[in-house]
Amino acid sequence: MAVKRKKSNTGDMIVPCGKEDSNSTEKKSNGKEHLLPSMIKNKEKRSAVHAQLKHQKKLEKRKKAKAREADEKRALEIGEEPPPRKIPRTIENTREFDETICKPDDEELFAGNDGDEFSSILKHESTSKILITTCRFNSTRGPAFISELLSVIPNAHYYKRGTYDLKKIVEYATNKDFTSIIVVHTNRREPDALLVIGLPDGPTAHFKLSKLVLRKDIKNHGNPTSHQPELVLTNFTTRLGHRIGRLIQSLFPQDPNFRGRQVVTFHNQRDFIFFRHHRYIFESKESKQSDSKATKGKDTKDEKSAQEKTVARLQECGPRFTLKLISLQQGTFDTKGGEYEWVHKPEMDTSRRRFFL
């Protein structure tokens, strides 16, 4: 067998020629096959390779989709069940197991609902009455946001904060038969937090407010009416989420007026509560439909007949914002001696698949 001397730091090394050639060809072939755009220094070549890889990936995805559609069509023609579609892995359906997730047959949970702080309002024994105020240092967008909250929440009243302490406001609101207090906190001329206090026995929830969009900034927005809206709460699945959902539910009357076609939605996703305010709009449109009519002794002819069809759509009324729960405190607002049911801490954010609401 032929040999070849190869120089190294320690001296000459005898390497078989055949083995060296095979290794070098394998490295070259692997280098060509697994060439990544990040390994190319030339910017034009790197962008060209990236575009080519992206195009190939798109073609493969389209090819798989066509093959799946063909299999489903073939199964329907034969009369068999189509192959089951794969469920994509998301953060929501791979969330970590939580022992506090509510079950439909949880008797302890429903027994606790009868004796909590919101039972009188949710059982129609009393009517919700909300007091809305601000922090001591108000901003320019704060009053605009409060005026839109007043149009969303029925039986809500605004009181100027002035220099009053929050504990005195709680005492005043309790004597005036208010059921809840909403404090809009602002920072740098922008509302950034909400404090919701249940009266007279609490609890007190502190939310971080972000992504605020007022009604005037929403394209093709609608104007709300004085009708009481329908309330929709989604994805409040844990014990903590159930309690926050009942707190939000106690802010609104429990007898919606469906004639107004208004819907207020609090949608929880990954512990972010998205607020939306819509109204239904029903429109009648003409739809052209081809009807084939067969007559004796004559060929079938397609005749287009115009028919009226009612189409329903949603029109956003605003405002639009996102809430993030910071803490839930027992009783009314008390920063020194109050006991907290739940507090968000930075060490809780170690896993992206761990949710609390």
Rank of each mutant, 00 (worst) to 15 (best):
F356D: 07
D299V: 07
E20L: 13
S287E: 11
I130M: 13
L150S: 07
E316G: 05
R246Y: 06
S147K: 15
V343I: 15
I273E: 07
P319S: 07
K336N: 12
L325A: 06
F252W: 06
K103I: 00
K43Q: 03
M39N: 07
T225W: 09
A144M: 14
A306I: 10
I101A: 10
E44D: 08
G112S: 10
D114Y: 11
G31A: 03
G331E: 03
Q52V: 05
E347C: 01
F258L: 14
E316N: 09
P200V: 05
L314C: 06
N268G: 06
E33D: 05
A306Y: 11
F266S: 04
V264G: 08
N93E: 09
H242R: 11
H157P: 01
E92P: 00
P319H: 10
T133L: 12
F110L: 11
E286D: 02
A205D: 05
I40C: 05
K6S: 09
S284C: 07
P191A: 11
D302A: 08
H267E: 14
E26I: 11
G245P: 03
S284R: 15
L35V: 00
S290D: 05
E33G: 02
S284H: 13
E171K: 15
G331P: 02
R279V: 01
E20I: 11
I281E: 11
R261E: 13
H50A: 08
Y280K: 13
V232E: 14
L149W: 07
E81L: 05
K345T: 13
E33T: 13
V196G: 08
I197Q: 06
E69R: 14
V196I: 15
P83I: 04
K211Q: 10
S24M: 01
D106W: 02
K336R: 13
D201V: 03
K103F: 02
F207L: 00
E316P: 04
G142T: 15
S119D: 01
E81Q: 10
R74M: 06
H206L: 14
F252H: 08
N42K: 10
K41R: 12
K54N: 04
F236V: 01
D165P: 00
E283K: 15
F272C: 00
W342I: 01
N175V: 07
P154R: 11
M1F: 05
G331Y: 04
K4R: 15
E339F: 01
G338W: 02
C135G: 15
P83N: 07
R215W: 02
D271H: 06
E107D: 04
K324V: 02
V264I: 11
Q307R: 14
E125P: 00
F333V: 00
L109C: 03
K168W: 06
A75Y: 00
R279L: 03
Y340I: 08
G31S: 08
E108A: 12
I40S: 05
A193C: 05
S287N: 08
P256I: 07
A144W: 09
K167Q: 14
K309E: 01
V3E: 06
S120M: 10
F274M: 10
T94E: 09
